[in-house]
């Protein structure tokens, strides 16, 4: 059984059919890309997968469990974590706090413990800090753990977002344009990081990307979206030489 199964997914905003009849199947451990021109509905698909929008048609199943209709925080608990196209960090909190928040539902203690700092407070906090530092090390952010997240340089903010998502220990990680706004060096570094993360954290990845180099470099399978519909799917080399895909990207 596939880890993620999306069947006939569709959503309408008033009269606008933003996404229609999208079918996606992702096997466990795969690294899959979702590409398409601007406005094709890629982020809308992500928003439906994570419960930000409720699809009007179709079904989404993670490991056989229904996702449609669940609240975003419930979907995260089921095992889907994501990053955002326009970075969404907890800007006034420290880098460490951002990642520790990812462990919010993993390392827990009760409200009375929070209010009194008695009992398991110190043990659990240390445990959470240690886990968070481990992830920060993978992203080479451990040196800046007490910076405010908003004060990090752009490329590191993107990395921190991935680190925070991974802290929730997801089965499926959705990356929305992870390389947006990065220079070629940063992009190359990010490609490596994604590879490392995927192996080390044993996570399945679906990413939206415009950077063709990144997509063809690391993705094993691609889905191409155009005007809300699937235009093509297959291996990167097959998809990127497909005349229809080239037309969608470059025009006639």
């Amino acid at each position: 059984m596939a880890l993620l199964e999306v069947r006939d997914l569709g959503i309408s905003f008033g009269g606008l059919r933003a996404v229609d009849e999208v079918n996606i199947q992702i096997e466990k451990g795969a690294l899959v890309g979702l590409i398409g021109p601007n406005g094709a509905g890629k982020t809308t698909v992500f928003n439906m997968l994570t419960g930000v929008y409720r699809p009007t048609d179709g079904a989404i199943r993670l490991d056989g469990e229904n996702v449609v209709g669940k609240k975003p925080y419930e979907i995260n608990k089921m095992g889907i974590a994501r990053t955002f196209q326009n970075i969404r960090l907890f800007g006034r909190l420290s880098v460490l706090d951002n990642v520790m928040l990812g462990f919010h539902n993993d390392v827990t203690y009760s409200l009375p413990t929070s209010l009194s700092h008695l009992g398991s407070y110190r043990k659990k906090e240390k445990q959470m800090q240690a886990k968070a530092m481990e992830i920060l090390k993978v992203f080479d952010l451990d040196g800046q753990c007490d910076y405010k997240a908003a004060n990090l340089p752009y490329g590191k903010q993107r990395k921190l977002e991935i680190a925070r998502a991974l802290a929730t220990e997801p089965k499926l990680l959705l990356l929305d344009e992870p390389a947006a706004g990065m220079n070629p060096n940063e992009t190359a570094e990010l490609m490596q990081t994604i590879e490392v993360v995927r192996k080390q954290f044993d996570v399945t990845v679906l990413l939206i990307e415009h950077d063709m180099k990144l997509v063809s470099g690391i993705c094993e399978y691609l889905y191409v979206l155009n005007f809300g519909r699937l235009l093509a799917e297959g291996t990167p080399s097959a998809v990127l030489s497909d005349p229809e895909v080239i037309t969608a990207y470059l025009g006639d």
Binding site: T50, G51, V52, K71, P72, Y73, N76, K77, A81, R82, F84, R88, L89, F90, G91, R92, L93, L101, G102, H104, N105, R164, A165, A167, T168
Partner: peptide, 13 residues
């Protein structure tokens, strides 16, 4: 406070 959508996305109600 800092970001509702992001808080939701990491499992915080």
């Amino acid at each position: 406070r800092d970001n509702k959508i992001a808080a939701d996305s990491i499992g915080i109600s």
